[in-house]
Amino acid sequence: MMSVAERILSRAVNEITPGSIVNLGIGLPSRIMHYLPDDFDVQIHSENGILGAWKQAAPEAMDPFLIDAAGAYVSLGQGASLFDSAVSFAIIRRARLDLTMIGAFEVDSAGNLANWKIPGKFSPGIGGAMELAQKTRRIVVLTNHTDKYGKPKILHTCRLPLTAKACVSRIITDLAVIDVTGDGLVVREKLVDISDAELQEKTEAELNFATGEGPHDTA
């Protein structure tokens, strides 16, 4: 049986379209690379200054001076480029990224994202998240459906300080794929056998269920 992380990742990898430029956030998203075929046509942007980062280098080729933003000893694909942090964020702010997949502490029915600060408890910092969330054409959030105490992470309105407003297009959890639309949150797929009522119970925000959707449907 797949772990929760594997379930999220094996669904999330389908979001990456050939020929695109993609940023994968620290944590769960950065692991998606390993679900892509070796010859997949994509350029992975890493905000520490890489366009064309690829899977972990072979042990003899690992370079301590070449990591991605998550700290992994990546290799470089054909045609990769390396540059300073100002150029790296010019790529982001000029909206040259097609897709960013990112983690969340909270996400809400308006597509607001909170992922940088839990006041007094855990404040890792903003990192690249604010610019990525505000400027990437499409933001897909990868998150467990509930937190470690079983509380919903998909809220009516975020309570933590926001990373960016109305930036999220899609939320992929261990239970479902949910789109942020003008009509609120719409469940597109379920990734496990769960009733609409049960899924709603684990979600603070109101969910709309697309008609005719059953478990494992691919919309």
């Binding site: 300073d84 964020f89 007094g120 404040s123 903003i126 604010m130």
Partner: peptide, 18 residues
């Protein structure tokens, strides 16, 4: 930082670079 022994100022990464 949480104990108040280190003053930390956070910026968005690309804004710090710029």
């Amino acid at each position: 930082m949480n104990q108040g022994q280190l003053d930390i100022e956070f910026h968005p990464q690309g804004i710090l670079a710029e």
